[in-house]
Every structure is written in C-alpha cells, then in structure tokens.
Design a protein around this nucleic acid. Structure first.
Length: 286
DNA sequence: GCCAACGTTGGC
DNA sequence: GCCAACGTTGGC
C-alpha cells in the first residue's frame, strides 16, 4: 500500500499477493493465530502504556519533577527532527507506545465551546498505484483498489515517525486525500474517510511482510495503522505539478509541498477546500 | 536510473 | 549529544 523502502531483495517468497492490503487486518481477522495473539498482547500492553500516560498527565506535577529532563530531551529531539518523535525514542522508550494524547486542537474549532471536541482535521495519504514488488509481494495500491473494497482497509506499512504521529491523531470521520505517488502521474486522485482510529500495525512483526520492522516488538509496538474507506474518486487527477503552481500562494501551508517525503501529512482546511476546487474545475479551465 | 532531500544509525 | 555516513523516498 503506502510507499516504502526499496530493498532490491525481490526474493520470490510465496506470498498471497495483496496479503498486506487485502487484509482489513483488524482484530476481526482472527484467522492468523500467531499474529493475532501478538496483537492481543500488544494491545494490552499498549493499554497499560496508555494508562501510564494518563497517570502521567494527571500527576503531571510530580511527573514534571521526575521526568522533566527526559521530556526536555524529547522536546529537543522533536524539534531537531521537526517531525515529532524521532530517532532515539525506540523500543526502549515506553513513551513510544504512548497513544494519542490530545493532538493539538485543530485550527478552527479551538475557539469553539466544549473543549473535548477538537475540530475536524484533514489529511493526505500516499500510496503507490503501480506495481512494485517488495519481498515478493506487490505493494501496489491505487484508489481503484480502495474503491473495490467491501470492508474498511487497514492503511498499513507506515514506518516513519512523523507519518505515524499523524496517523495516531486521526479521528473517526475525518477525511483524507488519496495521493498516488511514485508513478507516471503523481497527484491527488480522490477522497477517503477514516473509519477506525489507530490500532497496531501487526505487519511490522511479520518477517514475510514487505514492511517488516525487525526492531519493532509486539510487546512494545511502534507502528500503527488506521482503517479507511473509499469516498470519492475525482474526475481528474490533481497533479503534483499543478499543486506546485500554488505552492507560494493558496497552498503555501501544504506539507506535501514543503516536505515531500512525508507519506501521511495534514492538510490545512483552507488547502483542502482549494484542492477540492481544483478537482472540480472543468477541463477547459485547467 | 539518477539524485536531492531528508531520516536514521552509530562512533566518538 | 554531535555529526558523518548511510539509507530511503519519490519526483523527474
């Protein structure tokens, strides 16, 4: 599905093609015993971590004293890497499993009444629509593939902290652009909806998976996915080249254009609306 | 296939 | 904790 590493390995391992994506590998996929157990365990663990995190927040005073150094460190790193949780936070750090605290409240709704309802945010997620074999499996995933699904699709394979953090702050009901990358005509091709919030991406634990991460540990999961469903395919692709025309203007704040490599990024509401406008433009006006 | 930009790793 | 070397993304 989403883009990833290019190991040239190509070992023609067996592989029920599409295993990765065909999945909807949510907890309902009770078939795979091993992975499932792992997931269950991992879930527990992450719950614990969640509890810890909560406690940490509640007892923030004490915590501030005991952990302030650590936090300072993290903050610094985060700044350095500018992508959120970076480099060293690996397996060791239990904070890694910390789930979605309050994402920064969204722009517009920040000011509105009842605090606990952050505004809806918008996203952009990349996938490769053209065949590419990774560890014997085709990682291709296009908007047409998504459209053909009858069940929510687990957006797995995200192996970048910045992207992951974005995944983890997605809320059910939010919308995302589907972006075709690493292909002839890269660009935004349609819209999907988040139908299930972050859960553990168990493909990280399976050596046969294209996006296996030997450093991830079911007991302290690093990688997450969300489930999405198809909403709409645009009549035309809003190409990257076209988007770039507005990079200094209407789309100045579009992370896609500033940090091209992030496979899951946020789209400011204004940019969202603007892109929709582009997508609906009659051909003559393009 | 090239390569710029950026992320990650590991030595010190 | 810095930073050089290495790896990956993804447009072209």
């Amino acid at each position: 599905m989403p883009p990833r590493k290019r190991s040239q390995a190509d070992d023609p391992g067996p592989a029920k093609k599409r295993a990765t994506r065909s999945g909807t590998r949510s907890e309902t996929t009770s078939a795979k015993s091993g992975a499932c157990v792992a997931e269950a365990k991992a879930t527990e663990v992450s719950k614990e971590a969640e509890e810890e995190a909560k406690e940490a927040v509640q007892g923030s005073k004490n915590e501030a004293q005991t952990k302030s150094k650590k936090q300072a460190k993290q903050a610094k790193r985060a700044t350095q890497a500018k992508l959120g949780e970076p480099t060293t936070e690996h397996a060791k750090d239990p904070e890694d499993a910390k789930p979605l605290k309050q994402p920064k409240l969204a722009t517009s709704a920040t000011t509105t009444q009842e605090a606990p309802t952050p505004g809806r945010r918008f996203w952009l997620m990349k996938a490769e629509p053209e065949t590419r074999i990774e560890k014997g499996k085709d990682v291709k995933f296009s908007i047409d593939d998504l459209a053909s699904r009858t069940e929510p699709e687990g957006w797995d394979g995200i192996r970048n902290y910045g992207a992951r953090n974005n995944l983890r702050s997605m809320k059910e009901g939010e919308l995302a652009f589907f972006y075709h990358s690493n292909c002839k005509f890269p660009g935004i091709v349609g819209i999907m909806a988040i139908v299930k919030e972050a859960s553990i991406d168990t493909t990280a634990f399976d050596p046969k998976e294209p996006y296996y991460d030997p450093k991830s540990d079911p007991l302290n999961p690093k990688w997450y996915l969300v489930h999405v469903k198809f909403v709409e395919k645009f009549n035309r692709t809003v190409g990257l080249h076209e988007l770039k025309k507005y990079a200094g203007k209407e789309l100045a704040d579009m992370p896609l254009l500033k940090q091209g490599r992030l496979s899951v990024s946020e789209v400011p509401e204004g940019c969202w609306d603007f892109v929709i406008g582009l997508a609906k433009k009659p051909a003559e006006e393009i």
